[in-house]
């Protein structure tokens, strides 16, 4: 296997570092959206729909 040049190695390590921290940004975004959804009362909307049999969903209605 051909050895990596310094520039390629630098790019690889930078990409690795970005990937290592990207999850944090994604997790923070998810947490904010989750909190926002709770504040806007979305679980109640879901509850309302999920507690009635959705005949269309199961191919009956």
């Amino acid at each position: 296997m051909r050895p990596m040049s310094d520039r390629t190695a630098f790019r690889e390590s930078r990409r690795g570092a970005l990937r290592n921290h990207a999850w944090l940004a994604v997790a923070a975004t998810g947490a904010v959206l989750l909190a926002l959804g709770i504040a806007l009362g979305e679980p109640a909307k879901i509850f309302e729909k999920a507690t009635a049999i959705c005949l269309q969903c199961i191919g009956i209605g």
Partner: peptide
């Protein structure tokens, strides 16, 4: 706009997927 968007579910799925 947000009150009509499924942000709770998307947030939950995104948070889980981040891990």
């Amino acid at each position: 706009i947000l009150s009509g968007a499924p942000v709770f579910v998307i947030g939950f799925l995104t948070l889980l997927a981040a891990f």
